[in-house]
Write a protein that binds this DNA or RNA. Structure first.
Lengths: 199, 199
DNA sequence: GAAGTATTTGGACGAGCGTCCAAAAGATTC
DNA sequence: GAATCTTTTGGACGCTCGTCCAAATACTTC
């Protein structure tokens, strides 16, 4: 269902509120524990309204999740294209790790969305596209900044490693950005001699 | 519920069959889509029997998942302790990546279990323990094999990276072990000069 | 093979699920 | 302010959920 039928600002606000609730509830409860009634309760509406604005609950969750992931990657993408260094870029990648809070595990939204997408449907293709786009932009940044290995492969592993770290962080609070930084730094081929190691 | 009440071989077999079904169904359908009736159907039993052998469906899934993860890590652990090299070890880590099949995504079991554990409960502590044990054994192997950086941090990032790659692999079939190998090789501080690069 | 224990069945229970819809309420247009 | 269109409600639908339990069955012990 498109947004073409939305004629009033009120309708748009209600729709957006439901999308925002989904983004909050998916990581907190898990994808399939976000039921129509729970979502509606959180958004302050009645369950019936879901099918006025969306084709189904699943469509709502998919739109919310892929939208949130796309939005979350937009800022890092722009940063990479603003001419930052290897070290600065890596710091940015890992910043999300330390934003983790046990009661608001927004980082798990990525993992939940991946898992939901892995089981097929429209979500799969859309998320794959968003991810591919981000990886490409990361690879171009690596080349621009003088990385001389396989930029595409390195970008892919870097993105996967960050997601994996988010997942492991949920079980190990000690797995902070500080711990991961030197290791991934090596994966990017940065030795102490290559760039300033003490900023 | 313990297994203390099991007096006959038949009872044990039924119990085991349910655990095995859970291990198959969790990655295929997703953790919370494995219902009592679906599981019973796959195991060839009636749903009621679940609560004879287990306290609840959730307890069944947790025991099955943590058991499968522990078992899956047992072989790699032993391999690491058998004196294999850095390159051989890394190959082993990445081997799971290429065992991925879209219709039998067993690698997603790890991610599903992590996600379920992240939401708390007994599973959380048990899985954290299994993971910590594996990471420690990996770190000792790194030291033994001559790795001179922070072995614990490197082991943690390596484990997280492999899980992240499993997740991303589900959306990108091109993300094979061959692609990831050179990048993680660098993270382990292996340069072409350190060890033989062409085996 | 009878007695006793372990296992399994089949059906039921209340609760919650996604979805739908006629009617009410709100907003906009003339 | 009447008419029209958009948005929201409240209640209902059929279905599946996890769990429970008395009765039936299988197995072991003597």
């Amino acid at each position: 269902m498109t947004t073409a039928h939305l004629k009033t600002a009120k309708g748009t606000r209600t729709r957006d509120r439901m999308l925002e609730s989904a983004v909050v509830l998916i990581p907190r409860l898990g994808w399939s524990a976000v039921t129509a009634r729970v979502l509606a309760g959180h958004a302050g509406v009645r369950p019936g309204i879901i099918h006025y604005h969306f084709d189904s609950l699943e469509a709502l969750l998919a739109e919310a999740a892929v939208g949130a992931v796309r939005e979350a990657l937009e800022f890092p993408s722009r940063q990479l294209e603003s001419g930052i260094s290897l070290d600065e870029g890596l710091h940015m990648f890992l910043a999300a790790l330390d934003e983790f809070a046990p009661d608001e595990p927004v980082n798990l939204l990525f993992v939940e969305t991946f898992l939901a997408a892995a089981r097929g449907g429209v979500l799969r293709d859309e998320l794959a596209q968003v991810l591919l786009d981000f990886r490409t932009r990361t690879a171009r940044w690596l080349e621009r900044v003088g990385f001389d290995g396989d930029a595409d492969a390195t970008a892919a592993v870097l993105a996967a490693a960050v997601d994996g770290l988010m997942l492991h962080r949920a079980l190990d609070p000690g797995l902070t950005a500080d711990v991961a930084f030197p290791v991934l730094r090596r994966a990017l081929g940065i030795t102490a001699a290559t760039e300033g190691s003490s900023p």
